[in-house]
Amino acid sequence: MSTSTRSRAVRRDARAALLFLAPAVLFLAAFVAYPLLTAGVLSFHSWDGVSPRQWTGLANYERLLGDRIFWGSLRNNILVALTAIVFQVGVGMVIAYWLVRVVPRIKRFAMFLYVVPVVISEICIGLLWGFVYNPYFGLLNGFLNAVGLDELARGWLGDRSTAMPAVLVVMNLTYLGLYILLFVAAFENVDKAVYDAAAIDGAGHYRTFFSVSVPMVWSNVQATTLLAVVSSFKTFSLVYVLTRGGPNNATDVVSTYLFQTGFGNFEAGYASTIGFVQILLTAAVGVFVLGLMRRGKRGAA
């Protein structure tokens, strides 16, 4: 008797659970799964977005393998990710520690300043930095000329050798604040007693940071690193506003190249291939980063 009532109860619960999950599932199906599948199917076609699509099998993927611009843009994405780990997660952690443990009095004000760029739209940030980098009336060259470093002044965004570094600086400065914010919250949640114990053991800030603070917030480090890497792989607006991916594709990232292919060249099939590979790569890199950090944690423990 009891089993049948229990199974009936379970079934009722399951039905209720399904009902509650339905909106989210439907939403995901309509706005994530369906477009993803469509892109997957499209990636095997040649399609200009207007005329009937043509099945081309693996041709798009073959083209991708030999596509110099795609690999260049992927390299740029990797650069974005690496610098994000160092200059957003890493430096963000150090500054957060400094704010929480060394100068707590200015913490609120400093955080406000750091977070300002995070809440401004990327388009505005890009436009503002465009003026900073302008070779003739920009702040940067103006500053260099003022301090007598005229030879260093150049057309930052138009010069092949400086365009990507210039874009990277903007990206990292923009999102540094987000990571400071996250780590300040994390460090504040570390029990004071742990710090007191470290202090009694004679640990300085350097030692406390690496042996106490970072291990204590390791799960946050994992999460933020993942966030930084994943967002690096789909970055778009700042690059688009600053350089349109130019000069001559030097600053293209996968998303800007995808946009160009799909909406500039009207190659919807090939753009889907790029997008599909981008999703797979982002997922793979995310899993890889998580695995690496789990091992790092075990090694540290």
Binding site: G130, Y133, N134, P135, Y136, A153, R154, G155, W156, L157, G158, D159, A163, L242, T243, G246, P247, N248
Partner: peptide, 9 residues
């Protein structure tokens, strides 16, 4: 041409 012509709108 201006310096950095490719990066200038």
């Amino acid at each position: 041409l201006p310096k950095g012509a490719n990066g200038m709108s």
